[in-house]
Design a protein around this nucleic acid. Structure first.
Lengths: 244, 244
DNA sequence: CCAAAAGTGTTATCCGTACACCCATGC
DNA sequence: GCATGGGTGTACGGATAACACTTTTGG
């Protein structure tokens, strides 16, 4: 494996992905924990190749780090304060994982990588919306595991990754109806109650059931399918599906 | 002057500024023409120093290229398609200005600069809102002149700068009320008619006078001052000022 | 037949729009 | 007084919110 500095990336530019999913009335973010000692959580991140656009880079990083592809993915924020670097994180990582830096032939990080990696970085934030029941996130070989965390109960993440998630959530809230984002977080078919619970989760407030139905249907984005019989002793709700 | 590559900039990252002003019922953008042969217009752009944040860089670039400071300035878009570079522009520039590239001691561009400058760039777009009557734009030593252009009648600009302006305008329209942007384009005091004409310009459609007044006042952002006697044979309008 | 939950209809309220009217101003 | 343009009040209609009622389902 070549050192990072020779892999044809744009210097000091990174892409961070906030991947939203929804399950059990919880809005979740997919965050891997790095497989090194110390318990470091970091958003799926990567760099931009010279030959690719930033949007393509975000897609590729999402794919490489989580196995997820073909989902809604959009840029929402750039963070690039002076001195923004992963030096603090990497120094701690090395302190807890000294073997990583021995000059073995099989060493994983090289001196040159350290210089490259700890420089000041400007990062473009992307957020993705996925059907959590459909995707099977796969950890990359950098990760110990990858897990969905309630956005209200995130692990401590490195650098300013928490701040990035906060901005992503704000963007999600503001553009939810406009971009029909909610339906990208749900399975292909769903009941109106599912939609309502999702909205209530995202905005953290209740909606009136009858009016909510009218509002969502007035988006003219759904088609009504057959009823869903659950065996419960009550009227069966209709299933809906996003048009097209 | 040191070559660009030694000036401590982040590589392949630029900042482009779209500066909006308003005058005579026209929304204008401040665009300098470069002082080289060929008639090249380019948004005020620059690079980010290692030691500064991207927001600070945008502020500095605005100041250096136009003399404008202390104004609303906010990031709105990143453009970074594969192969986005100013090579085409620079080659044409050199073709029309061959003396720029002679190896004189006083040469302005160096070979190293050419390499640096024509690499693929990712650019962060910022838009600024200024009181056109208050600022006195100053061209930098790169510019032949700097001028306000009607956003509906922009000169042909290099690279994707027109596309950047289009995105800036979209952002302005979407966030106008929320960010009280309009009042940042007006003088300190103004009449309701001034506001209405500005809105009609930005959205390119008429608003009903009486209802517009109610809508603007309902923002609770203005205080009413004395009347403005113009000498016209009609009722004198009130002046308003942005609160705080 | 009942409880639970879904669907739908009805009314009240708010908000944006349209129309109307009045008022100040200088000739 | 009169033309002009600014300020404000009222009425209408659509959208949203609040309330109520009906329907479906399985025990």
């Amino acid at each position: 494996m070549h050192p990072l500095s020779e892999q044809g990336y744009i210097d000091q530019l990174s892409v961070d992905c906030v991947i939203f999913g929804y399950q059990d009335r919880k809005l979740k973010v997919l965050v891997p924990q790095l497989r090194f000692k110390g318990g470091f959580w970091a958003l799926p991140s990567g760099f931009v190749y010279q030959h690719e656009g930033v949007d393509e880079a975000a897609q590729r990083i999402l794919q490489e780090r989580t196995g997820i592809s073909d989902v809604f993915l959009e840029q929402f924020w750039v963070t690039g304060k002076a001195g923004r670097s992963s030096k603090e994180f990497l120094d701690r990582l090395i302190e807890l994982n000294p073997s990583l830096f021995t000059p073995d032939p099989g060493e994983e990080f090289r001196r040159g990588d350290y210089e490259w990696f700890t420089r000041r970085f400007v990062s473009i934030g992307y957020y993705a919306l996925v059907d959590i029941s459909h995707v099977v996130p796969q950890k990359s070989d950098l990760d110990a595991f990858i897990e969905w965390y309630d956005v209200k109960d995130l692990p401590e993440m490195i650098m300013d990754h928490r701040e990035i998630v906060v901005h992503a959530l704000e963007t999600l809230r503001i553009t939810l109806d406009q971009k029909l984002s909610a339906f990208k977080l749900l399975p292909e078919t769903f009941t109106m109650k599912d939609v309502q619970e999702l909205y209530e989760t995202i905005y953290d407030r209740p909606f009136a059931r009858n009016n909510f139905q009218k509002k969502i249907l007035s988006l003219n984005a759904l088609e009504r399918l057959e009823k869903k019989y659950t065996g419960a002793a009550n009227k069966a709700p209709y299933l809906y599906r996003l048009l097209q």
